[in-house]
């Protein structure tokens, strides 16, 4: 009990850190995932191949390895001295984007074929069909898997803590190294994660109700 009250600032920083890194990488993953999903269904073969390679490689790489790549290889390519937060966001966002892409792609294939056919017969181009007809209708089926992808992302963000980003795991490690009882720390950290994951699933439930259509 005392651990929480005595170290409230640390816990607060950790909580906010987890929130920040989850939000940032969720945004990155959403944008990249949509883009790559567009690539994967596009009529341009090299883009399709790129999308497939992207998803295959990222889905089959352990996230810890991606973090190592982000922290030791990426600084060699881009600028050295990028902040750990940015690098962790890159690793998490790229990893999650492959899952978002697959969710979006399966959402696209659940839209009735007639919709795309009608759009085509109106003379719409591929990007118009995708942007104005198919993706808006795919949103409804994509929301539930997206919710579990973002919950997984929240939990995965714990790995960033091991790479010196201030977030909940980082805080628990710090306090445990100072010799506080691990049981209480564990309890509070678990509770904090539960709050975030419940918030995400609640948010998505609201979104699903908003988007839902009475059939």
């Amino acid at each position: 009990m005392n651990v929480l009250l005595d170290h409230l600032p640390e816990f607060r920083d950790g909580f906010l850190g987890t929130l920040a890194i989850t939000a940032a990488s969720a945004l990155l993953a959403l944008v990249l995932g949509l883009l790559i999903a567009g690539f994967r269904v596009s009529p341009i073969p090299p883009l399709r191949a790129f999308g497939t390679a992207w998803v295959t490689v990222l889905r089959n790489t352990p996230l810890t390895l991606l973090f190592l790549v982000a922290f030791f290889v990426v600084p060699q390519i881009l600028f050295p001295g990028t902040s750990p937060f940015v690098l962790a966001t890159l690793a998490l966002g790229f990893y999650t984007s492959s899952f978002v892409c697959e969710a979006v792609r399966s959402g696209i294939s659940t839209v009735p074929i007639g919709q795309a056919e009608a759009a085509r017969s109106l003379g719409m181009t591929f990007s118009q069909t995708l942007r104005m007809i198919v993706l808006p209708q795919a949103t409804r089926t994509v929301l539930p898997p997206l919710s579990s992808i973002f919950i997984a992302l929240t939990k995965n963000s714990a790995i960033a803590g091991a790479f010196s980003v201030t977030e909940l795991f980082n805080v628990s490690k710090l306090l445990s190294d100072q010799g506080f009882a691990i049981g209480w720390i564990f309890l509070w950290i678990a509770l904090a994660y539960l709050v975030i994951t419940f918030a995400i699933s609640g948010l998505f439930r609201v979104l699903e109700r908003r988007m839902g259509v009475a059939r």
Partner: peptide, 23 residues
């Protein structure tokens, strides 16, 4: 049906040229 192929028409000569350019 994979869904992907319904998203665009069989390309005509102009689209073929454009797709080649995009490729």
């Amino acid at each position: 049906m994979s869904g992907a192929s319904v998203l665009y028409d069989a390309p005509g000569p102009k689209t073929k040229a454009r797709n080649r350019l995009y490729s």
